[in-house]
Design a protein around this nucleic acid. Structure first.
Lengths: 182, 182
DNA sequence: TTTCGACATGTCGAGTTTGACATGTATGGT
DNA sequence: ACCATACATGTCAAACTCGACATGTCGAAA
């Protein structure tokens, strides 16, 4: 009945479940952690999708502000839909598409010397990004349930992700630079 | 000039750089680690893309076997294109789309009790998947450069990924079940 | 010998995504 | 007063994705 691009639908519902926002604010949200690790979307997908969501009664416009801005709020039906999606048992595999990871997978196609150069860049960049997130974590207090905790769970996820990739890159460099076997 | 869906192009080039394969074999490759962590693609994208790649002179058909199978081999131009892409400095952010990660980001929109249920499922499933990869690692020897090492780098990446998500999920459960603040 | 499943390639249409284009408003600096 | 910038929403065409459909081969077991 509906297409299977349900992920944007639920990303929007999830964001609005935390707090009502305008399309513009939602667009900004996709430019931070969310878009970096989980799901990308530009305003050209978001505005039409909000329209469809409103038609289906999952969200509604609860305020119109300056410059024609419209604040959307999730309805009870929207919350129910979001919960159903989140609580549903994982169906094998979800869609995965990550250009950075693809680059890592393709590394073996390079001369080992070139691969090491790329891996060193990865190691450096992940270390830096992890440092940034560690600094952010120090500034924040303990995680609280609800809206406040939203960014903290994500930040911690990102941090552990970067640490894992960093240690993997170092391991890979070691493997490639180890003395060749007899 | 060309669309920006360059990632499938390079995924195919990378796979063929390791060894010549048919479209069918390439399709199979996308069903394993590659498709699980890095980039998904079905045969309906792969066959047309191979045609375009051949037109651009990046790959060529070097053998035709039983049942109409065509074996593609990467050309020097294709190798050069792949190297350029891999060695290019990361352009801000690549495309990211991961439904599982999106679910994790949306968890804060749930009651803490529901969130813990989902997190426990994640912790269990990542632990299992990590075990599978650890078993595979034990069976393989040390990593060698070249085609043989291809899958091992990927498997190790996946393993560290699962371990990171597992430990994150456990941390998140602790945060959510910790005694509420005063 | 016939039938089943894995091998192997392909097209098509409906839906999704994306960059380019278009429009207009409020704010702050000069 | 003017200008740049951030705010804010939207359309459109081109490209891309993906499931459904279509076709045919080869080997092995029943």
């Amino acid at each position: 009945m509906y297409g299977c691009g349900m992920s944007l639908t639920h990303a929007l519902l999830g964001l609005l479940a935390v707090q009502p926002r305008s399309g513009y604010e939602l667009t900004k949200a996709f430019e931070t952690d969310l878009g970096r690790y989980a799901w990308q979307a530009g305003h050209t997908s978001i505005y039409p999708e909000l329209g469809k969501l409103a038609e289906r009664g999952l969200v509604e416009v609860t305020a119109e502000g300056a410059r024609g801005s419209k604040t959307y709020t999730v309805t009870d039906a929207g919350r129910a839909e979001l919960r159903t999606w989140l609580m549903a048992p994982p169906t094998g595999q979800g869609k995965v598409r990550n250009e950075q990871v693809l680059r890592m997978f393709m590394l073996s196609a390079l001369d080992p010397a070139d691969a090491v150069v790329v891996l060193e860049r990865i190691a450096e960049s992940t270390a830096q990004q992890a440092d940034v997130l560690r600094a952010i974590r120090e500034d924040a207090g303990p995680v609280e349930p609800g809206p406040e905790g939203f960014g903290q769970l994500a930040a911690e996820y990102g941090l552990r992700q970067f640490e894992a990739v960093h240690s993997w890159a170092q391991w890979a460099i070691e493997q490639l630079t180890a003395p060749a076997r007899t």
